[in-house]
Amino acid sequence: MRAQQSVLEQINLQLSERRIGIIGYNGSGKSSILRLLCGLMQPDSGTITVGEHCTSIGAKKLCRTIGLIFQNPDHQLIFPTVIEELSFGLRNIGYSKAEAIMASETILADYQRSHWRDKPVASLSEGQKQLLCILSILLMQPSTLLFDEPYSALDYPTRQQLAKVIANLDQQVIMVSHEPHTFAEFERVIWLADGKVQMDGQPTEVIRAYEANAEQRNHL
């Protein structure tokens, strides 16, 4: 709910493709869908099922099934050093301190970032912070990753590199963006407008219609 106005209405979706893009203008309800999917927000009516769980069990219990990478890494990163940030989630799901640190070191090594271990999070660049956010969620081994405008603060080369990292993930990816070309390689694109599904289908068709619509509208 944003100022007592419903953000999403009559949404009925089955999201099973490996790469799904959600596109829409600001205020269309894109981010709300992600918050609903990971249990940070609960629907006023209706139900949402992720895997075999209903999202009403809440974000804390869903974090091993579905993980959200926040739009602004500074909102997601809580701890002063990389290793603490990575092991935080694992401690919550029952790892001992030593196990959590070992798993975190392993994932850093997998991504050739072992030298990050004791770095202060504040010293990382925006793109590096974004990668750290992804790694800290990957450690929880969710089957689905949710990305909220992951490229919005990145320069072009960093954005390309991050896109490559995301493309190589084994997990299902559901990504939100207002920028259509992000989804050129995706399997399915859903266009949200005013909290409703405007169009749902192959990227080429949806992107073309979305661009045509954006041309016509004067938003300023």
């Binding site: 804390k60 926040f70 602004n72 997601q76 919550n92």
Partner: peptide, 18 residues
């Protein structure tokens, strides 16, 4: 507003450590 973001970040990763 920031405290809400931090609360979200904590909840999205399994709550407060035991």
């Amino acid at each position: 507003v920031f405290s809400q973001h931090v609360a979200d970040a904590i909840n999205a990763r399994g709550g407060i450590p035991k």
